[in-house]
Design a protein around this nucleic acid. Structure first.
Length: 289
DNA sequence: AGCTCTTCCTGAAAGC
DNA sequence: TGCTTTCAGGAAGAGC
């Protein structure tokens, strides 16, 4: 699934071919995930691509066309979205729903098997409001800000890591991998963590994401970059989808539990279960240990 | 505030 | 073998 490292890899790829190109035609197929399909088809043709950026898990393609102010073409890949650039003659894969023809004979294509993605156009003037719904960039947030944002929250740490209003870009894979690196159990209440643990987590999130970007992301099922190539970080996962396999640190079997309605993988020895009240201690043993 | 459940969707995998 | 069921998950919304 595309999370920050995968989206960053796609964005870096798009940056090599899109800036300077003009979109000449928009063709939409089964595109019910587009907020306003006719607006998209009306506004994009004739627009020149100025730059490509990443905002959390969103891809932001900035369009310019004097004398109007800029427009932002925003894409979220959801679970199975693929945004690639290829020759217009390139064979079309199944579930390819959007085509954006460019002025150099190539096409920006969007393929999305489950159609959990999202596409919208936002004028430059609306970007502040859009960004207001998103938390801080995990690669930019300082240790102080990170500790400040987490230390007062009574929610489970895993739920907060996944909450895009807290940090933008972390998803299930990197939340689990970061918690393992910081040796924190996913069900721990954020406010009960020691400063030292929050600092370790801040650092772990950053290191894991940077490492994953270096390996061009994780390809679990459908993720590919802008050239259609798979990532390699899935080979380096320490806990994610390793249920029953030995921990790389201590050899204890990796466990899987549901936290924040998401499967969460962790090492029961390296990431000790949260303390619980006596009454439910046996239940908690069963769930977390 | 924070949790759980539901919805969207398809394909892989498990169950029978 | 082949059909049916279950599950996975990012995000948003409902309800508690």
């Amino acid at each position: 699934m595309p999370e920050l490292p995968e989206v960053e890899t796609v964005v870096r790829g798009l940056r090599k071919s899109l800036p300077g190109r003009t979109i000449v035609e928009v063709r939409l197929g089964h595109a019910d995930f587009v907020d306003d399909p006719s607006l998209l088809a009306d506004l994009l043709p004739g627009k020149r691509i100025a730059e490509v950026a990443r905002l959390g898990k969103f891809i932001c393609i900035r369009l310019e066309s004097a004398p109007e102010s800029g427009l932002n073409f925003i894409i979220h890949l959801g679970m199975t979205g693929q945004l690639t650039v290829c020759r217009a003659s390139h064979p079309i894969g199944t579930h390819t729903h959007c085509f954006f023809a460019l002025d150099d004979g190539r096409e920006l294509r969007y393929r999305d098997i489950r159609r959990f993605g999202r596409m919208l156009v936002i004028p430059e003037s609306g970007m502040d409001e859009f960004l207001g719904h998103l938390g801080k960039e995990p690669l930019e947030i300082s240790a102080e800000e990170f500790c400040g944002d987490f230390s007062t929250r009574r929610a489970r740490i895993k739920a907060l890591l996944l909450d895009q209003r807290v940090l933008r870009g972390v998803g299930n894979i990197y939340a689990d991998e970061s918690l393992f690196r910081a040796r924190i159990h996913p069900a721990r209440i954020a406010a009960t963590l020691r400063k030292k643990q929050l600092l370790a987590l801040h650092r772990a999130v950053r290191e894991i994401l940077e490492d994953a970007i270096r390996f061009r992301g994780s390809s679990i099922s459908d993720y590919v970059d802008a050239k259609g190539e798979r990532g390699k970080y899935q080979q380096r996962h320490r806990v994610y989808q390793r249920t029953g396999k030995p921990c790389f640190r201590c050899r204890k079997k990796i466990r899987r539990v549901i936290v924040a309605a998401r499967s969460s993988h962790f090492c029961p020895r390296c990431q000790p279960a949260p303390r619980t009240r006596k009454k439910i201690v046996s239940l908690s043993r069963e769930l977390f240990w």
